[in-house]
Amino acid sequence: MMKRTLDTSDLDRYMGKRLEDSLPLEPVAANDIRRWVQAMHYPNRLHYDRGFAQESRFGGRLVAPQSFAITQDDGHGATPACIGLIPNSHLLFGGDEWWFYGPRIHEGDRIYNERIPYDYVVKETSFAGPTCFQRGDSHYFSREGDRIATQRSTGIRYNPAYAVEMQSSENQDEYVWSDAELVDLEDKKFEFISALHDLGHANRSFSSVSVGEQLPTRVIGPHTIPSLTTEWRAYTMTLWGAMTRRKPVELGWVGDMNGKEMDGEWEKVNPEQTDGAYIGPSRGHLFPRYARQIGMPKAYGYGASMGAWALDYLAGWAGEHGYVSYCNTQYRGPAFAGDITVMTGSVTDKVTRTDGGSEVNVKFSLANQSGVVVATGKAVISLSA
């Protein structure tokens, strides 16, 4: 058998250098925030119910969830983690590491993002042989120059022909849920929603939390092609004419995965070929036939959305007086169409910082209905005394 190889020689010229900007053309609108939490299945009234929000500690303008930052980029944070030509390649999301610095995003804000490729390494994997794990940083700032967050994303770049060759063709069928199971799922989903309602505007204080405490279980799904499409359409970058577009760079996508996705000049000619839903590397999420061309058995979810689910899960538990200051989510596999995602977490430590601040450490996981873990993570959540 011919030795499998992956040519990453072009990547070095990008490392540590700021990429061309690609920014939203308008300020954040209230309905941008509402569209986002609806697509991310996060019914926290703080982010969509103006009356409830005005009674919160934020008041006034509608506040966005912390996960909203990734909508202010033209590649949901992946851009600096997939720059450079790797011939005959494709990309999956491998994880997101977040640092949040305090300022929140509100309706009316203008957000700026600086993207800098960080590093990469090639490893041999059972998924696709030689695989490039590439990392890049996105730094989100307010119009006033306040740093909101830093996102370090991991892109998994591989040769899809190798992945198809090495993967089994089994499990192409989606799980079929009975009517009774669907009713039971709605009850389980409402348990987390009820926990949000029960906390309301109250303060989840540092003193009220114990090591070993279990966070309420959060269930979303079943994931479907319509639900995945709804998620995709909530990213600002997928809206026609919503952002300044950087010049296209050859990345090495192959066959049906190649296209003019996010190409600003072609967007003026035929935008349906540029918004990622129908043509180009993102089409594998929504079309099973294209998913199978890159080693996936069926339609599958977006890694960036999975990271948002985790951030929302943690922030919802923390409440409006709490704050996720750090979160590192590592993706082990996608959320496939037909599956559900079950989020669980627990408090592993309580820390009083030298500056007097109080925070708790949390570990969490995301799994499907069979208990297969699709993501794990750890987070630091700041709570008031």
Score class of each variant (00 low, 15 high):
K188E: 07
L182H: 06
V254I: 15
K188F: 03
Q172R: 13
S210K: 14
G284W: 02
E261R: 08
P248D: 09
R289S: 14
P248L: 11
G280C: 08
D275S: 05
V164A: 09
G241M: 05
R218D: 03
D184T: 09
V211H: 04
V183R: 07
V164I: 11
E261K: 12
S227M: 08
E191L: 09
A202H: 08
V254L: 13
P288T: 08
V269A: 11
R218F: 02
R246F: 03
T238D: 03
D179S: 14
T224H: 01
Q293C: 11
I279L: 11
V164R: 12
T217H: 13
H197P: 06
T274F: 02
P226K: 05
E165K: 11
K188A: 10
N203W: 02
V164D: 03
T224N: 02
V176N: 08
M243A: 10
V209G: 01
S282L: 14
I225A: 02
A195L: 03
W232G: 01
R245W: 00
F192Y: 12
N270W: 13
H223S: 14
I279D: 02
W232C: 11
L239Y: 02
H201S: 06
L286F: 08
N171F: 04
H223Q: 15
V211T: 11
P222M: 05
W177P: 08
D275R: 09
F206I: 07
